[in-house]
Design a protein around this nucleic acid. Structure first.
Length: 445
RNA sequence: GCCCCCAUGGUCUAGCGGUCAGGACGCCUCCCUUUCAAGGAGGAGAUCGCGGGUUCGAGUCCCGCUGGGGGUACCA
């Protein structure tokens, strides 16, 4: 089995593209030694293709840990071969040159009926069009959708090369897939309608077409096409939002594909083992970041504290995070959640007037004074004794735990949300803890 | 306009002629509890888009409609 992922470098790799890459990768890896994934960059649109985008796509694939076996092959680098085939098709009458414009095509349809495809006449100059027969039909054999028949009468004589002779997508893709020995073309459903044109190119080449698999498209939460306003839409945005590649792979795999047992948390190795392209769904899916967040949290908690610390230090650019990670790992879903929760340990308490007002009033001040003296005597200054000391204050004051712990929390973190209070006190150390409490005392709301 | 695809709770899905239509996210309640989470236990939520068929029996098969999406570029 030989599959390919063929993005066009006209922008960053979006979630839809990432899923297409993933499905191709899963197919190839499922076959083990017999599976090959070819990466081809479809850069025939010289206006919009940029080296920056190519680099970005490669970077995204690497981050997702989706490796390829051949390529990346630039489609433009195959221009000579394209010219060769073009000349051949021109020569044997499968294609012809025509100066007909889009307006001419429209006019033709006005005359012949909207459901009649445009047929031009050979002029010896202009763009190169594929000669489409009026009779017969092309059948797209798709492992997900079954057979789809396109009557040739409805098809236009497609332009396969520009007036300057450079190849266009529907032609280049067929030639390149054929030359690369691609056996299964797995891509988005937006390509389904263009497939008969490609089939006609295969036919003109006298070549057998590959098997197709058109994946349902991905939509945003509003059912519309996915775009930036839907939040993290590109792979790099997902990375910046603190998601783990393994979680992204798991989530994306479930967008349009489901195993018979309908499991939700499926590690990559298991994905590879179970993946079956024929089981891919036919209906479009909405990208739901809330579910991704949940799943990411599950993957995050499976990491050892050392691993998670390493990831978090890379993500935040800070070091010495291990103790803080240890006490907050149960409370974050993404790498990006960590700093807002635990950053105060390193950068000092945040300034939240509402929290101060609520917890550092008269009652709070009194509590802090008691806590301060209790903490000053804790020995050793460790988790268990710290907890005992604070609970002692609760008991001595006959207060509710919350009325003691929240003022302390606000004194330490500045906000009413933080990792466990005993743990935080321990991680901060006695000096820093007392210093922060002292600072809070006298600071009225 | 024309061609094509699709249709199970809000979302992702299981289902492949006979199930109380199952699971996951989210939501609600309760437990745990120092906050927030995490975890545990329950719960609400689907006349399987609508209408016709076929069949003893249809979410599952067929037709129509509606809705959504894609294509219709000298873009990919």
């Amino acid at each position: 089995m030989r599959v390919r992922f063929a993005p066009s470098p006209t922008g960053a790799l979006h979630i839809g593209g990432a899923r297409t890459a993933l499905f191709n990768w899963l197919m190839a890896r499922h076959e083990g030694e017999d599976g090959t994934l070819v990466l081809r960059i479809e850069d025939t649109d010289r206006e919009r293709s940029t080296p920056e985008n190519v680099a970005q796509i490669l970077d995204a694939l690497q981050w997702l840990e989706l490796d390829w076996d051949e390529g990346p092959i630039s489609q433009i680098s195959r221009s000579d071969r394209h010219q060769e085939v073009l000349a051949q098709l021109l020569d044997d009458g499968h294609a012809y040159r025509s100066t007909a414009t889009a307006d001419d095509v429209r006019a033709y349809k006005a005359r012949h009926g909207a459901d009649r495809g445009f047929r031009g006449t050979a002029e010896g100059e202009g763009a190169i069009r594929l000669r489409v027969p009026d009779d017969g039909a092309s059948v797209v054999r798709d492992v997900i959708r079954g057979d789809t028949t396109f009557q040739h009468v409805h098809l236009d004589d497609a332009v396969i090369a520009r007036g300057d002779g450079t190849a266009l997508y529907n032609f280049a893709v067929a030639v390149d897939d054929h030359d690369a020995g691609i056996t299964h073309v797995v891509r988005g459903e937006d390509h389904l309608s263009n497939t008969p044109k490609q089939l006609l190119v295969y036919e003109a080449l006298g070549a057998a077409p590959p098997v197709f698999a058109h994946l349902p498209l991905l939509h945003g939460p509003d059912g519309k096409k996915l775009s930036k306003r839907h939040g993290a839409a590109s792979v790099q945005e997902l990375r910046d939002a603190g998601y783990l590649p393994a979680a992204v792979r798991n989530y994306l795999a479930l967008l349009g594909w489901g195993d018979a047992d309908d499991e939700t948390l499926i590690p990559t190795a298991e994905l590879v083992r179970r993946f079956d392209i024929a089981r891919v769904s036919r209906n479009p899916a909405q990208f739901d970041e809330v579910k991704l967040r949940w799943m990411n949290g599950r993957y995050l908690r499976e990491l050892s504290t050392d691993e998670l610390t390493a990831q978090l230090e890379r993500f935040t650019g800070r070091t010495g995070l291990r103790d803080a990670v240890e006490i907050s790992r149960e409370k974050v879903q993404t790498l990006a959640d960590f700093w807002p929760l635990a950053g105060f340990i390193f950068d000092g308490p945040a300034d939240d007037a509402a929290a101060r007002e609520k917890w550092l009033g008269e009652a709070g001040q009194a509590v802090l004074a008691d806590v301060r003296s209790a903490l000053a005597q804790v020995d050793p200054y460790e988790l268990a004794p710290i907890e005992a000391a604070l609970r002692g204050v609760v008991e001595a004051r006959g207060a509710k735990p919350k009325d003691v712990f929240q003022p302390v929390r606000v004194a330490l973190a500045g906000v009413p949300v933080s990792p466990g209070i005993f743990e935080t006190l321990a991680v901060l150390g006695r000096d820093e803890s007392l210093a922060r409490i002292d600072r809070a005392i006298g600071q009225t709301g």
